[in-house]
Structure formats: C-alpha cells, structure tokens
C-alpha cells in the first residue's frame, strides 16, 4: 500500500476528508520554504503539494503566477525540490509534487521519479499532462514507486475519465471548475457531479481543487470528496505571514471534519 493509500484509508476511517495544502517550492523564500510546509502540516494539513515554480504556468491564476515568479527570482532551482521534500518527510510529513511536465522532461522523467522517491516524496500531480502522452512518465513512476496523479475536469467525458483513472495512483485530482487556480467566493456546482461520475468508474480517493478558501467551503466539498485541495488561499495567507497561514490551515482542517459529529 502506498503512502497516499494509507493516508486516505486513515481519513476515510475517520469519516472525514483529507486537507491538502499547496505552496510553490521556494516561497516565500528558498531558505524558509520547508519550514512553511511543515507549519501547514503542524496546523492541520494531512498532505502538502510542493509546487514547481514554472515560467509558463498556463493553469494558474495571478496569485500562484506571482508567487512562482517570486520563488524563481529568489534563486529556486529544480534540484532544490528534493531537499525541501526531504525536510518534510524527515519530520513525518507527507508530500507530493505538483509540476508542469516540461521541467520533469528536462530533468529526465526517470531521474525525477528516482530522486523524488529517495527524498521520501509520494506522488506527482501533472496539470498539463494527459494520460495519452504519459508513456515515459508512467514507466518512470512505476519503476520508482511514485504515484502518478492525473486530473479530470468537468468537461471530461466518461470515456476520458475511465482512461485517466486507469493510470492514476494515490488519488484522482478533480478540478472543481473550468478555469485556472484562484480562490473563489462560491464552490462550483460542477464539482459534486464530476465526483459522482468518477465514483462510478473508480475506487480511487478523489481530491477536489480549484477555488477553495474558507472552512465552510472545505466542509461543503468534504461532504462528497476524499480530499480538499487548497492552493491560492494558502499562497495569499503565506504572503501575509506564517501566523495567517497556520490560522487558515486550522480553519480548513476544522472544515474537512465538518461532516463528523463532535467527539464527546
């Protein structure tokens, strides 16, 4: 059983969703990056997504774009990823990467999976890679025991969801809305339907992302998903300070437990 399977088995046993927090690696600073991820885990994140700052992030809105540019300007290099992941796993935290595919291709798919596995990373979310093009990546992740995590979107027909879940390990990333990353006032009405369609095709845990920023929204999603993924809201909070980031994690952690009656 992979680390991610264990994680979701545990949260399912607790009848709650997992809280998954995203930050770009090297943000707010390269030196302080690992500590910030660990702060999120301390404050209630079950899993962190370590984002690879990329020059051309087509699926990201302005908040994450700006943070990625800050991280790159601060000297982030691809090799820094593995040190950050190592510091997270050394403290018992669980981490996956989120990376556009070109940096992985440039590093070498096999070397990337190998070095991530050595650092204790569990999986990689690839927002611009579809399973149709993932032959090399699937071979690399399988060889090194890394979970390849693919996305499905509200526009994905059944046939494509089916093909995607066949190759996905760890959990399935369901994009709640048609659009880029960024906090939104309301949870998309497309998400419950998408998750329901996925449930008919797979037993994989399903994480829902894009647009979540409050505990109430987290509770709403936790009612039908296995994981609540929060990105831009954490980035904005970290921009303000670690205290704000911890407070947000605590609020969201309460949210993902919202469907569970208080323990007496």
């Amino acid at each position: 059983m992979s680390g991610l399977s264990e994680l979701f088995a545990a949260t399912r046993a607790q009848n709650r969703a997992a809280l998954i927090g995203y930050l770009p690696a090297g943000y707010p600073t390269l030196a302080g990056s690992a500590d910030m991820f660990n702060a999120l885990i301390d404050s209630g994140c079950d899993l962190v997504e370590v984002g690879v700052p990329y020059s051309d992030p087509v699926m990201d809105g302005p908040v994450i774009q700006a943070a990625a540019e800050t991280a790159r300007a601060g000297g982030f290099r691809l090799t820094d990823l593995f040190g950050i992941v190592e510091k997270i796993s050394a403290k018992g935290g669980k981490a996956v990467l989120m990376s556009y595919y070109n940096p992985i291709m440039a590093y070498g798919a096999d070397a990337f999976a190998r070095d991530l596995a050595a650092a204790g990373g569990l999986g990689v979310i690839t927002p611009d890679l579809i399973v149709d093009e993932a032959g090399d990546w699937l071979a690399a992740t399988e060889a090194h025991g890394i979970d390849p995590i693919f996305l499905v979107a509200p526009s994905s027909p059944t046939e494509r969801i089916s093909r995607t879940v066949e190759h996905t390990r760890g959990f399935l990333y369901a994009a709640s809305t048609m659009g880029v990353t960024g906090a939104r006032d309301q949870v998309s009405s497309l998400a419950p339907d998408l998750v329901a369609r996925c449930r008919e095709l797979t037993d994989l845990p399903i994480g829902v992302g894009l647009g979540v920023r409050t505990g109430a929204q987290a509770a709403e999603i936790a009612a039908f998903a296995d994981g609540v993924i929060v990105g831009s809201a954490f980035v904005s909070a970290v921009t303000e300070g670690e205290k704000q980031a911890r407070a947000l994690a605590e609020e969201l952690a309460a949210g993902v437990r919202g469907t569970v009656p208080a323990i007496s």
């Binding site: 087509v58 611009d128 579809i130 149709d132 093009e133 979107a153 526009s155 994905s156 994009a175």
Partner: peptide, 12 residues
C-alpha cells in the same frame, strides 16, 4: 507534436 495540454482543454 501531440497534445501536451491540460485535460480540461481536451474536450474543446
């Protein structure tokens, strides 16, 4: 060539 794009764009 190919289609190196997000799943959300495959439909369109």
């Amino acid at each position: 060539g190919g289609r190196w794009l997000p799943e959300a764009l495959v439909g369109v």
